[in-house]
Every structure is written in C-alpha cells, then in structure tokens.
Design a protein around this nucleic acid. Structure first.
Lengths: 219, 219
DNA sequence: TTGAATATGGACTATTCAGTCCAATAACGA
DNA sequence: TCGTTATTGGACTGAATAGTCCATATTCAA
C-alpha cells in the first residue's frame, strides 16, 4: 500500500487505466505493458502495489463496484417509485453515453474472471450484494410506509431487478443498442409495481394495465 | 471445410473441446495447445479447419447457439403458458446440472469476445435473435388464439424475457446458486402473464395476485 | 488398384507477456 | 539538513503461445 501522496496517485492511476482498457478491449486484450503505457508508469511501480495481474484485476472489480454504487442516488434507499424510475433512467443514459460499449462495469467481469479466479468470483458476488442493497432498503421502507404490499418478497424483487439490469446490459452490448436496456428495465419496473399496495392515496399513479402498456411501448 | 467423414469428426471434436474448455475456464485460459490436447488432434488439423484462434472461437458461438436452441421445445412456438413455464424450468434444471458453472453458453461469450472481435459481436447478436424467435412466435400465436392481449408488444416481451434469462444466469454464475436464475425467471413469467387476456375460459389460471406471490415464494 | 486429394503428426519460430531485479531518485520525519 | 524509507525506471528472463511448414499417412473416386 502506498504511503505517500504520490504513491496513492500512482496506484489509482494504474487501476483507472486498467479499468478503462478492460472496458474498451476486454480482459484478454489488456496486457500489463498496455497498462503501464496508458497509466504512464513503469513495471516496478505496478508490482510495488499489486502482487500479480490477477490482483490488479481484482482491484478493478472494487473500483468498478464503487463506480456503479456512485450512480445510485441516496433517495433510492428512502424508497419511492419515482426514485426507482430515476435510477433506471440514469442507467439507460449511462449506457447511451457509453454507446453500448463494454456492458456492465461489474457484470461484464463475471464472464471474464469468474471461472478463472475464484477470489474474483466471490468479490463479484459481493459487489452484486452491495449493489442490490439500496434497492432492498428502499423496498423495505416502502413496505413500512405502506406503498408496497407486506407480502412482497423484497429479496426476490431486488434479485429479479438486478437480473433485468444485467441481462439488459448484455443485450445492449451485443446489439449495440441502449434501447435493449430500456426494454428490460421497463419490464422490471412494471413487475416491481405489481407489488404495490392500492390505497386511496395511491390513485394518482396509473392503473396496472396502463402502466404496463406504456412501459412496453416506450421500449 | 472437411470433405471426408473423418474430417468432419475431427472438426467437430475440435469445436466441442474448445467449447468445453471455454465453459470450464473461460476464453482467456484456453490455449490452442489445451484444445489440441483435449480434442486429441494436432496443430495442423486445427489450422486446416480454422484460419485462426478467433475463427475457432467464432465457431464456438455457432455451436453453443445450436446447443441452447436445442433446449427450446417445439411447443414453445405453438404458444402456451405451460410451454413457457416448462422452458423456464428446463433452464433452471440445466443450470443446476452445470452446478452454476460457466453461465450462459452464449451470453457469457459477450463479455469475453464482443469488445475484441466485432465479427463475434455481430454473431452473438444474431444468436440472441434466433433464440428469441421461438418465444416471439409463441406469443404471436397466443395473440391470435386470444390468450394474449392484442395490445401486447411481442418484441419487447421477448427481449425483456431474454434479459431476465441472461441476467439470471450471470447472477447464478457469480453466486454459484441456480436459485438466482429461478428468481429471475419467476419474475419474467409473472411479467409475461400480466399480458394475458382474461376470458371466461381462462379462469382456471390463478388470479394475478396469486400468480405473482407464488412466483416470489418459489424462488 | 492407383494416384490425386484430403487429413495428420509434430517440430519449429517469432513474439508476446507476466514477473524479477537492481540501481537511481524523490519524499519525509527527526 | 540528513539519513531512512518510499518510489521510480527500465533492462532482463523464462515460459507460454499463436501460427508456419513439411513430411507422412489415409481416404476416396475412377
């Protein structure tokens, strides 16, 4: 671990460069020589902070996890349909900006690292846990507040949502079309809303049929 | 292309060996030397049938696509809720049998090949098209038969379903838990069923609330 | 049966790449 | 300031690997 300011900067630069290269060309096509060139560091700097190439790639998992968590607004945990919708929309925007390249910063690493590095696999599983948590918290809060049915299975809902996110990103990446993510997330949103509690106060929200139809068309 | 029976067998053995190695260890950790050892062939045989390592990996895409298409029962195209449910269940069984290793035979290749080989990316996109088609056909048939609302967006439904499949497989792979796929597919099924047409004949099917709750619990 | 086309075996090459090593320099605390 | 510790530069190594080449063996059609 670096002890000086310079050291910290160097280390961060290495991880950032690796993350970008992996996003743009994949793990296979990212050599350490590519990394040192892009980060403008030398081999010894790299091996001062990382034990091996695998160790460096594991740090990329950490960094990319922070990246996606930063994209989760605080009000998602507070729990509201609006916050969930906004979260979904921001992901589509992010994907549009990336021109559908690289897929999910975390999810795309599963296929590339999970079978070759058991440590990496576990870390990726943890990343998904952390990523799902704000949604779980939000859904729990909505239960307490009475906007979500008490019978709703919060864990399953969060997992199913994460699956739609990941799958939507894979399809976007393969088809180079951010619209694929939008379709997946519209379906996920409609599915979540099926768990809502209908009260007198809630009738400002569209009725089930209308919400589902709109989601389908928007895609 | 091979012209003798032996040639065909050799070529097929090479692709099969590559496919298995890629599933077990990932593209990165699969060298051509590994392939020739596993397929019990020599280098020259490999290069007789494939121009390059990339070309071989592209054939793996083709093979694995046939593999997943073989898992789609014919009655899915005929169109029925039962067929869809059976299809989903068979995927969960497949994933259990694989002990959550390797993820999706097609989807896991996206992260590993898409950014490095544009040809491979296009081929993967086509694979998803072919894979979605039987479901689209089935949903269209259900519209005609009147078990699915005419307003339902068949294309979006198929895409959202494929996203749940892919995402569910990624989460299963990362967490080494086939239950993750089951959760994702139960949600996808519940979402599809929201598009159904309620008729006098259809009241043998569970009401929306019950269907959703059951799906959540099963996970 | 025969010979042309096809398939096979495996040695060889050139390169790439992860990882090592050590000397030189910069940062920092006393 | 000075000495210790942290950081940096880059040459070097050994192993792995994609791809080449050619001699040999097998297949198959006439």
């Amino acid at each position: 671990m670096p002890r000086t300011r310079k050291g910290h900067e160097t280390r961060a630069r290495i991880v950032a460069a690796t993350s970008e290269l992996v996003r743009d060309r994949g793990v296979v096509n990212t050599s350490l020589d590519d990394v040192i060139e892009r980060a403008a560091v030398s081999k010894s700097q790299l091996y001062l902070y990382f034990d091996s190439r695998d160790a460096l790639l594991r740090e990329v998992i950490v960094r990319n996890t922070e990246l996606v968590l930063a994209g989760v607004a605080d009000d998602l945990e507070t729990g509201s349909w609006r916050a969930i919708r906004a979260w979904f929309d921001s992901m589509v925007e992010f994907q549009k900006a990336a021109r559908s390249r690289g897929g999910c910063p975390v999810g795309s690493l599963v296929g590339q690292l999970a079978e070759g590095d058991e440590f990496a696999r576990k870390r990726l599983a943890q990343s998904f846990d952390r990523w799902e948590e704000p949604l779980r918290a939000g859904l729990r809060a909505m239960k307490t507040r009475g906007t979500l049915r008490r019978s709703a299975d919060v864990g399953a809902m969060a997992t199913a949502t994460m699956a739609s996110i990941q799958g939507g990103l894979i399809l976007s990446q393969a088809r180079r079309d951010p619209g694929q993510l939008a379709i997946a997330l519209n379906a996920a949103y409609a599915h979540l809303r099926e768990g809502r509690k209908l009260t007198a106060r809630a009738n400002s929200a569209p009725r089930p049929t209308v919400a589902r139809k709109r989601a389908g068309r928007r895609a």
